[in-house]
Design a protein around this nucleic acid. Structure first.
Lengths: 213, 213
DNA sequence: AGGTGTGAACACTTTCACAGCA
DNA sequence: TGCTGTGAAAGTGTTCACACCT
């Protein structure tokens, strides 16, 4: 019933955005919202908003707009946020350790249920109520704690070995912070977070402007 | 001579990627590379690689491929990496403090030359050889230290006020970690890093698969 | 009137296929 | 022969415009 066609990357990104806007409208007590308003808050066009939503059904009332709580609920279901997810963090270096303490994931339904690392000196450390385990434990832990996704925050050199263990353990979603392209088997989804790449896009934009004026 | 047309987002992302691959080939001592090889390492097609590069000139030798060091140098110039950039970090919460210690930015030519925060309790703290200043100092600091970009790592509530100061101070590039759409004046470029959004894309992909099988 | 849902037009990106150079 | 550079074709994503519902 829900997703008949192939849904593109950008649609999903925009849905995430709409959801955040809806939640803030919900807090503000607004009951209904138009595609126009959603577009204003998300740097898109009203038509785009309607197209995006119509890919998953027709949730709006003509002449009225969309019901804020209802639309929020619908989008949550679409994005798989109507349940909680069990996540393992692999790598507690600079980035990894910041992520353990970061509350954003938990708020959105992603529970970190295990922490692993390759570095022996880090094993056994306590982070909140979790203890750092060695990466060799991954397969057991994934099974025992029903881990569905992994946040990969290890240095580039460590990626191949770790990635192999992760995929073998049956994990089907990876959020990758290492600045490399992960080669994964069919059926495993990878999303990359690459801060330096975004910085490069910035410096590209700024250098270009200078050249133009 | 260099960028006649409008260059799209995705081209820039791929250039960053190619550059990383080239650097690793450079370390491995490989002198020349074909579009085919670059494509293999970056999950694209050879034609795409050639199109991307041809937007900026023709750096290749027919029948031979591209000279690794030369192409790397060219891409660095395109991305504005042939110089160093002066960056201020605004917000030393969870994410901000991880970023101060993160070496990835410096390696690529982004020097953090100032750290600011709104929270009075954080002012005066030492991070390496930098002292945390209050956000009200931003305008002075930007002028004195020639800050060109800002990494924005403050909580969503603090964004509007901080953003206002940042743009008034004349900063023209912002790397935003807050999960909001920044509304900035003409001439200011924003790039977003949104980890939770990527997680949502993951859970969307995983939920969808489950529904299908 | 006001605002959705959507086919059709348009714009942009990617892929194909091949001419042309080393 | 081998691989680049690039027009033309195919494919995607976005915008327009309007029928239709409340």
């Amino acid at each position: 019933m829900s997703a008949p066609k192939k849904i593109s990357e950008s649609v999903i990104r925009r849905l995430s955005l709409y959801l955040r806007i809806l939640e803030s409208l919900e807090r503000a007590g607004q009951g209904t919202v138009s595609s126009e308003q959603l577009a204003n808050h998300s740097e898109t066009t009203a038509a785009q908003v309607r197209k995006d939503l119509s890919l998953f059904g027709s949730f709006g009332k003509r002449g009225l707009g969309y019901g804020v709580p209802e639309l929020a609920r619908r989008i949550r279901t679409i994005l798989g946020l109507d349940r909680r997810w069990r996540v393992a963090l692999v790598g507690v270096g600079r980035i990894g350790s910041a992520l353990v303490e970061y509350s954003g994931f938990e708020e959105r339904g992603y529970d970190i249920v295990a922490i692993l690392d390759v570095d022996p000196s880090k094993i056994g450390a306590e982070w909140g109520d979790l203890t750092v385990n060695h990466i060799t434990e991954l397969e057991n832990i994934v099974r025992e704690r029903s881990v569905e996704m992994v946040i990969l925050a290890v240095p580039v050199e460590a990626v191949p070995a770790v990635l192999d263990r992760v995929t073998c353990a049956g994990v089907r979603g990876i959020l990758n912070f290492a600045p490399t392209t992960l080669r994964v088997p069919e059926g495993v989804t990878v999303k990359n977070v690459n801060m330096v790449m975004e910085m490069e896009a910035l410096s590209f934009a700024l250098s270009k402007e200078e050249g133009e004026e």
